[in-house]
Simulated assay, not measured.
Amino acid sequence: MGRRTFTKEFKREAAGLVVDQGYSIAEACRATGVGSTAMSRWVKQLQGEYGGVTPKAQALTPEQQRIQELEEQVRKLEREKSILKKATALLMSDDLKSSR
């Protein structure tokens, strides 16, 4: 049997049963049909996100999802800037050689 996959919305709602509504992990597992290992991981992640920690995995809360999107944009812009710096240096060195 293959591994089940869950949407970030489902994970957020399932973990929210514990974090927001006071269910025990066992009760939330029974209510959602999810194993305790996965539920514990989601609960820990959601608690961390509520505390302002941006997870390495796909974020569950809209705020942390936005932070991840913005961090990816920053990484992309940094890569583009690096490429432009190298291209500028190359063009300038070519100009110096041809002006001699």
Rank of each mutant, 00 (worst) to 15 (best):
G2S: 13
R3F: 01
R4Q: 13
T7F: 03
T7N: 04
K8W: 00
K8C: 04
F10A: 08
F10Q: 13
K11W: 00
K11I: 00
R12Y: 15
E13N: 09
A15G: 08
G16A: 10
G16W: 07
G16D: 04
L17W: 04
D20G: 01
Y23E: 01
Y23M: 12
A26Y: 11
A26K: 11
A28L: 02
R30F: 08
T32D: 01
T32W: 12
T32E: 10
G33H: 07
S36D: 15
S36H: 11
S36R: 15
T37G: 11
T37R: 13
A38M: 09
R41L: 14
K44L: 07
L46R: 14
Y50P: 00
G51K: 08
G52L: 03
G52M: 03
G52P: 03
G52A: 02
G52Q: 02
V53M: 10
T54H: 00
T54L: 06
L60M: 15
L60S: 07
T61P: 02
T61S: 09
E63N: 07
Q64N: 12
Q65H: 08
R66W: 05
I67P: 00
Q68D: 09
Q68W: 09
E69A: 09
L70H: 10
L70Q: 15
Q73T: 00
V74H: 06
R75P: 00
K76Y: 12
K76I: 13
L77C: 06
R79E: 13
E80P: 00
I83Y: 11
K86H: 10
T88I: 11
A89Y: 05
L90I: 03
L91K: 13
M92S: 12
D94A: 15
D95R: 14
L96V: 10
K97P: 00
S98E: 14
S99A: 14
S99L: 14
R100G: 15
R100H: 12
